[in-house]
Design a protein around this nucleic acid. Sequence first.
DNA 1: TTATTTTTGTAGTCATCGCTCCATAAATCC
DNA 2: GGATTTATGGAGCGATGACTACAAAAATAA
Lengths: 222, 222
Amino acid sequence: MTTKIIAASPSPAPTRRGRGRPQSFDRAQALCTAMRLFWDRGYDGTSFDDLTAAMGISASSFYNAFGSKESLYQEAIAAYLKLVGTWFSTILDQPTDTRTAFAHLLATAATEFTRTDLPTGCMIAAAATQCPPTQARLRDLLATQRTQSETALVTRLRQGQQAGDLPPETDIDSLAAYYSALLRGMALQARDGAPRERLQAIAHIAMHAWPTPPQTTAPATP
Amino acid sequence: MTTKIIAASPSPAPTRRGRGRPQSFDRAQALCTAMRLFWDRGYDGTSFDDLTAAMGISASSFYNAFGSKESLYQEAIAAYLKLVGTWFSTILDQPTDTRTAFAHLLATAATEFTRTDLPTGCMIAAAATQCPPTQARLRDLLATQRTQSETALVTRLRQGQQAGDLPPETDIDSLAAYYSALLRGMALQARDGAPRERLQAIAHIAMHAWPTPPQTTAPATP
DNA sequence: TTATTTTTGTAGTCATCGCTCCATAAATCC
DNA sequence: GGATTTATGGAGCGATGACTACAAAAATAA
């Protein structure tokens, strides 16, 4: 066995030192390029030639390094999730009160969805929602990711409910679905070219739907 | 000139009585079939063979009747808009108060997006938001439709503002963007399989963001 | 040096894509 | 009936899709 000092990577080795001819390109950078392409044009809209041209590698290098277009896409999704996690999960994990966390989440989404150094919107929010039966695998993969992010919202809201940030009668699942739908809608608006301020305004309005304890209409108990 | 008793159709004749061999299929029905396919699988995801097979016609009949895949898609969009207009425009045109109209709009969207006799969600909401540069025409066409529906919301909100249903300082454009984003998000959730009740809950929560006049914190004027 | 391992470049494969050609069929007009 | 017009059936076309075969290149191991 060779010395494995650096932590083993999940599936594809990051920068292996081995026997054969060394790779002539930066795998991580090529993956990043692919992610941007997929993000911008979708899976179908990004052809094999588009990919190899943008990545600057040949077909054989492509298949040697990434296996297939579909597996590259899966890696691109993973890379995107890592990128988004830096704000999405981070904000949800912050020990602030729940309302503040969600306001922060929406506000950050508004800025992230309109970054000029990346494609606008979200790579996953609307991907493969209209696709042929032959792409059922892809559709399910993306739907799963979306479910997971909504589940993260549910988890955070439940924590908040436990902490007393939300009325105990609040329908957490529906509230999470509301914010999930809104975030996805914001991502679509961003892709259609909505400016950052517009998204921020949406985020601001959306927070007015935050649940309030039921007003005690009868002010006094006899 | 032949007798044209029935009102002339915009571009393609509906059921013209002419000289040559009669069409062997129902054009409107074939268009409806195509609309459903495009709605379900998107433009790229619906192949030429998918279309001709589902419509039950040959390639020559297809091109003779519809010109090209793209022009059929445009007709399908038009057919879809006519279908959606039966509730979308209708509700906005009703002489109810603005808040009621929007609540009704969202509630109806929840039921329409989850109809079992049609594909779920919306055909246009997320279409061609991730596509190659070669499909810029299609992307722009759909973006235009989305802009128009958001403009319809703006128009209705302005009417409401004039009528006193909304505070005069309300940011109408942002409020319309909020509801537009929400509707698009609901459509996406529907496509991912969210049940009708879930969408209705989202719609209900969303209405809590409806603007209220600024509270006069000072109860009395000296 | 030689053997082994891995990557690369070039060319080519096979299926599918949207679309077209053309002879023929089926209607109307004269 | 004959001419004209329009639709259909069937075969096929060029382009592009994702992917593969194979030999040469460039590294390490013995």
